[in-house]
Structure formats: C-alpha cells, structure tokens
C-alpha cells in the first residue's frame, strides 16, 4: 500500500524519535533503579529543561545544541537540590510518600511555568529546523539524525560514568544494597541526589535535541512522560540498556502503527503494550528485579 521508500523512512524516523524517547526514559529508569521510585515529576522537569533551552536560544541567541552545555549543569543542580532537600526529606523514605511528593512537584512546576510563561507555545527557529539529510532517495530530518547520534553517545557516556567513576560505583552499590553501601561509608542521601541529578541532566540533553523541531508550553512534558513510563516498564525498571532498546522499539512500533492504523489508534497501542507488560512481565525485557 505504501512504497517501500515511505515505509523505510517512517521506520527510520520512528527509530530516531524513539532515541529521544529513550533519552527521556534513561533518566527515569536510572532514578527508579537506584531510588526505587517512579518519578512523577519527570515530565514537568523535561518541560523546565525545554524552557531553559528556549530562553537560552530566544533571549541570548544561543544555538540550541550549544545550549545543552549550559542547561545540563543547571538541570543537574536542580535535580540534586530537589531530591536532597525536598523529595528525600518530605517523603520520609516511604514509597507512597515519594509517589505523592513527586506528583505534587509536577503540579507545582507545571503551574509555576503557567504563571510565569502563560499557556503560549514557544518555538525557536534555528538553521537546522528545516534541514534534511539526504540519504539516497531518503529525506531524514537533520535534528532527528543529530538526536539519534547524541542519544547513543549519551547512553555510552552514562554507562561509562556508572562503571568507571567513583560516584558511578557508589550509585551501583546503593542500587544493589543500600544498607551495605551505607555501612562502608557511602552517603546514601548524596548518592540518591546525584542519581536524580544525572537523570535531570539527561532531560536537559533531550530538551536541547527536541527544541529545534518541537515547541514548548507548560504542558509539553506530559506528552512525553507516559511514553517514557512505557519504555521504562518495557525495558525493565532500572535497566539502562533496557531503556535504550525499549525506546527505539517503541519509536518503531509507534511509527509502524501510525502508518498502518492511524496516529490516534497508535496511541492506544502504546498503552496496551504498557498494560500487557505490567501484567505479564512486570520486570520488562531486561529487568532482573521481581
């Protein structure tokens, strides 16, 4: 029904969009793997990062990709502060407490943005917004191609951080055995906050990659967060390779289903994958924990 060229293009586009989903899911799954919490503020934090990128571009004339270099540290600091001084103390370490505090934070952030920026949508026009990479007969969106590359690089970087650095080792130790880690002198609240901070920095990268071809309004994050949850569950909560592969998979599935079923039903497809995974294999594709 469609020419092979269109199908290939659609799937490639899905794969590349999936990479950005994966990047968003990466932070979520990392936080889950270590803190064992679902961070409901993740979508709102993505919106914050997108607004930061927008400000950097619209107000200070920065290139959106260059803006990542500034926004990532800012998001890192914000994430650290949030976990260390708000989520951690306010939730008293209880699961339910964390669920509710992060939900409360997401509402606070979303509405604070609404109060500050109103409900307008904002876009940036960069040189690459309309650029395409011509691969033979295929037209691939330049921002997407960049997004794909940067996501892979970020995942590798994250992997290296977790496996080669002291803080990475501490994070993995806390994820595995919190009590043991604290006994050997690792500060668990610090590690928690660092993990949250790294998760937020990933969002900054995702925001920088999204802005050239997307828009931001106070509710933008919500459009991505449910997909990110699905990816985290599908890949296995806490698994980094799971998030990457889950993201790419969801991207491709979404592209295929919207090509053949239409975009609206494609959305239901994502939720069904989500529900079925939760019901049948809550550990996901790569999760080890029961």
């Amino acid at each position: 029904m469609y020419s092979p060229q269109i199908v290939v293009e659609a799937l490639l586009n899905g794969l590349m969009l999936g990479a950005i989903y994966a990047l968003i899911a990466l932070g979520l799954t990392l936080i889950y793997g270590v803190l064992h919490i679902v961070n409901f503020a993740h979508g709102a934090l993505l919106t914050v990062a997108m607004f930061m990128v927008w400000l950097a571009c619209a107000r200070y004339g920065l290139d959106p990709y260059l803006a990542i270099l500034f926004v990532a540290p800012a998001m890192f600091a914000l994430g650290y502060g949030l976990q260390r001084f708000i989520i951690g103390p306010a939730s008293h370490g209880k699961d339910n407490g964390i669920l509710l505090v992060t939900l409360g934070l997401s509402i606070i952030i979303e509405n604070a943005l609404l109060a500050a920026f109103q409900s307008d949508t904002r876009t940036i026009t960069s040189d690459y917004s309309f650029k395409v990479v011509e691969l033979g007969p295929l037209l691939l969106s330049f921002p997407r191609v960049v997004g794909f590359g940067v996501t892979i690089a970020t995942t590798i970087l994250l992997w290296l951080v977790l496996h080669q650095t002291d803080i990475g080792k501490a994070i993995r130790a806390v994820a595995k055995e919190k009590l043991g880690a604290s006994l050997v002198g690792i500060s668990v609240p610090h590690v928690y906050a660092m993990t949250f901070a790294i998760g937020c920095a990933c969002l900054a990268v995702a925001a920088g990659l999204l802005m050239p071809s997307f828009y931001v309004s106070p509710k933008t994050g919500a459009a991505f967060v449910l997909v990110a949850f699905t990816i985290v569950v599908l890949g296995g909560m806490g698994s980094i390779p799971g998030a990457l592969i889950g993201g790419l998979l969801i991207g491709v599935v979404e592209a295929a289903s919207s090509l053949f079923l239409g975009d609206s039903l494609g959305q239901i497809g994502i939720f069904l994958i989500f529900i079925v995974t939760l019901l049948v294999r809550p550990t996901g594709l790569f999760g080890a924990r029961a």
Partner: peptide, 18 residues
C-alpha cells in the same frame, strides 16, 4: 494569574506529605 490555585494545591500536597 493562571495556575495559582493548582500551584497552591501542589504545595499543600507536598507540605502535608512532609
């Protein structure tokens, strides 16, 4: 100012959990 009521809700939720 839009969103102020929900913002207050969120703050109350976090405070009450804390």
């Amino acid at each position: 100012i839009p969103g102020m009521d929900l913002l207050v809700f969120g703050v109350i939720l976090v405070l009450s959990v804390a």
